[in-house]
Simulated scan of single mutants.
Amino acid sequence: MAVKVLVVDDSGFFRRRVSEILSSDSGIEVIGTATNGREAIDQAMALKPDVITMDYEMPMMDGITAVRNIMQRCPTPVLMFSSLTHEGARVTLDALDAGAVDFLPKNFEDISRNPAKVKQLLCEKILSIARSNRRSTSFSPSPAAAPVSAPTSASVAPAPAPRAPAITPTSAPVRRKAYRLVAIGTSTGGPVALQRVLTQLPANFPAPIVLIQHMPAAFTKAFAERLNSLCRISVKEAEDGDLLRPGVALLAPGGKQMMIDGRGQIKILPGDERLNYKPCVDITFGSAAKAYADKVLAVVLTGMGADGRDGARMLKDAGSQVWAQDEASCVIYGMPMAVVKANLADAVYPLDDIGRHLAEACN
């Protein structure tokens, strides 16, 4: 059955182009369009799409208000389109708080210059979001179909033989240890997930933290500022030369790679075009394994694909601990699933328990 999509945008050109791109995929059907937020609510209730694409700046009613109303009246996965500006980042983060699942940059030049790449990215997003959320129209916990895993961006040896039976959320007590670093990797659904985890940490959290969130370069500074305003710990966008400090979370800058050396210093490197993700969880996790061996506690949260699995394997081989978010609380059960299926997870926890368990483990 084709994924039914409602396209919402006040630009006739953008509505047509998005509709054409989506309709070119046999697995997707555009069942309607809307020109403002009010129309979007009416169409969502009448047509019951599987996914909605939404602009944020529209007449009559903006996209964020529309998302809030849709989540209250007929919960439906929403993919936001946003501008690559600081203000666009702020508004997009507001939309994610309101209930949107994910976002894509709204770049007219890319659509005209590289239509094949745009088609692949947009259609993959739509299909993965729909596949993940078909478990329930209201996003209640139940088994979800696994999203297609994207290729990982780090090349390492194949997975070894299974180490242990699959871990269940209730089977893994928190292991306390003097961790020298907490490393958290995430993608789709990550902005809200990170907010829920980090706001549970006390101001005197004893370990340094690094955060790797798949996000464009224009967004990470605004995201770090938002987290810093909400959390008791300090959060900032990482810069080359930053030193790891207890109670400070450093967010990898978008479009680049973040590594850690044995002195606890951050290295920010240009994003390699050969890598799928910039920043890449595998890259940061791998450097942490080399720098701190068994003194790292890594967490893989919601996200599409399998980034983090190979880095988690390097951390496990060095003796470190790896946690994964459970399926029921994930927006997209891709990255944590890859870690769990490779038998690399020491514990699997619901999202709302992870912050509390981090505070216990590092106490």
Rank of each mutant, 00 (worst) to 15 (best):
P191I: 12
D240V: 04
V182E: 08
S82H: 03
S171I: 01
I212D: 00
Q43H: 11
A359T: 14
A306R: 13
T170S: 13
D9R: 09
R163E: 09
T168R: 12
R175W: 00
G255R: 03
P169E: 04
K295A: 14
A328K: 07
S83V: 13
G286I: 06
V5F: 04
P202N: 02
M45R: 14
A150P: 00
P151N: 03
A252S: 13
I129G: 08
V8T: 12
V118P: 08
Q257C: 08
A144C: 13
G247M: 07
G319L: 08
N228F: 01
P75C: 10
D294P: 01
P216A: 11
A145V: 06
I233A: 02
L127E: 06
S287T: 12
T137D: 11
A318C: 05
G241V: 11
G334N: 07
D307S: 14
P169T: 09
R135W: 01
E87Q: 15
P115M: 10
R16V: 11
F81W: 05
S155M: 09
A328H: 11
W323I: 08
V3Q: 01
K290H: 09
A218S: 15
V67Y: 00
S132Y: 00
M58D: 10
F108Y: 04
H357N: 12
V3C: 10
K48N: 12
C362L: 13
P141C: 05
E225G: 11
I70D: 05
S149P: 09
D102V: 10
L194A: 11
D307Y: 01
S136P: 05
A161N: 06
A328T: 08
N228R: 07
R226Y: 03
I126Q: 07
V30C: 03
A238F: 01
G27A: 15
S329H: 10
M58G: 10
A217P: 08
P270K: 04
D97E: 15
I354Q: 03
K48V: 12
T85L: 06
S171A: 15
R232P: 00
D110F: 04
R134K: 11
R15A: 13
G99Y: 04
D317N: 14
I209Y: 01
Q213K: 10
T168E: 08
P206C: 08
T152F: 00
R274P: 02
D42C: 02
N228G: 08
K119Q: 15
S140L: 15
V340C: 13
D294I: 05
R135K: 14
G37C: 09
F139E: 07
P75K: 12
I212M: 08
A150H: 07
L275C: 05
Q321R: 12
V322Y: 01
Q43S: 14
D294Y: 00
A293H: 10
K221G: 09
Q257D: 14
A249G: 06
A342M: 04
G99I: 10
P105I: 12
D240K: 02
A159F: 02
D62T: 10
E109W: 00
R313M: 13
D242I: 09
F223P: 10
E360M: 13
V197I: 15
A238Q: 03
D110E: 14
R226L: 10
S138I: 14
V51I: 14
Y56S: 03
A164N: 07
Y333H: 12
L230Q: 13
T92G: 02
L344D: 02
G319I: 07
N363Q: 13
R163W: 01
S19R: 09
G264M: 11
T188H: 05
D42T: 14
G334H: 06
